[in-house]
Amino acid sequence: MPHGNGAPTDASLATTVTPELVAERLATGVPAPSPAVAEYALGLGDDALILSQRLGAWISRAPEIEEDIALGNIALDLIGHARSFLTYAGSAWGKSEDDLAYFRDEPEWRCVQLMELPNDDFAHTIVRQLAVSFSQYELYTRLSASSDPMLAAIAGKAVKEVDYHRDHGAQWMLRLAQGTDESRRRVEVAMTDVWPYVDELFRDEAFPDSLEGIGVRPSTLRDAFDAGVSAVLERVELTIPQGFIARGGGRRGVHSGTFGVLLAEMQVLARSHPGATW
């Protein structure tokens, strides 16, 4: 995450979200986001960053070279979203995007557990992409009308990119579900394994009433999400799995078994060589 430098004089808060701007805001005493808004932005930024890290691990290992590129491209978009959200969140606490990405321990992360699930096989990754891209599309569409200009600007940019991710996920679902007996079997297994973690995306546990109109209440996204995903699944005679729901808790800092390993890999360079740039 490279930093720019220099402090702009034109702090048009309605339109700019950069590390430079945050530095200026702090220097000139412009109020940073409230703790609740910062926590909310942190959750969205962590979702994007951790999924990006998982997807990056597919590069050189995807079923075909075009998919290496596709998943790498999607990961790059997500890094962009994460940088904006984390920079904004960090301004509330005097922390940079890098401070937040590299120097937080496991209980301090606010991503939902869906993002941190191991990649498993390609079907599992695609099922997760379907769920994440469709939910982020609904979320960012609504968030782009936020009363908080920064959140609105980040979401307005992100939604165009997530729309493309949505298409990627949907196309692959159709192909895998209608491919071979083996690809169909794997998609069905992946749906059963991944879907219990989808519920956490739509829980209001980390959404205080004070965020109304600023953030988007997660539970209000569920119907649109289910409708969008169902439209894809119906085409290939799949249904949304019912029943078991994972306990979750990612927004409170409760994470699953492999998350520590992911963090170690992501953070080791920055922690071994504090202040290094690359």
Binding site: G4, A7, P8, S12, A14, T15, E20, A153, G156, K160
Partner: peptide, 29 residues
């Protein structure tokens, strides 16, 4: 990042002493 550096470089070479380049997200490209 490369574009930012190139803008600084072009404008510095033309004699502008203090060049700030920053990024805006809205309206989205």
């Amino acid at each position: 990042d490369a574009i930012r550096d190139d803008i600084r470089s072009v404008l510095s070479a033309a004699g502008y002493a203090d060049v700030d380049v920053h990024t805006v997200l809205s309206p989205a490209w």
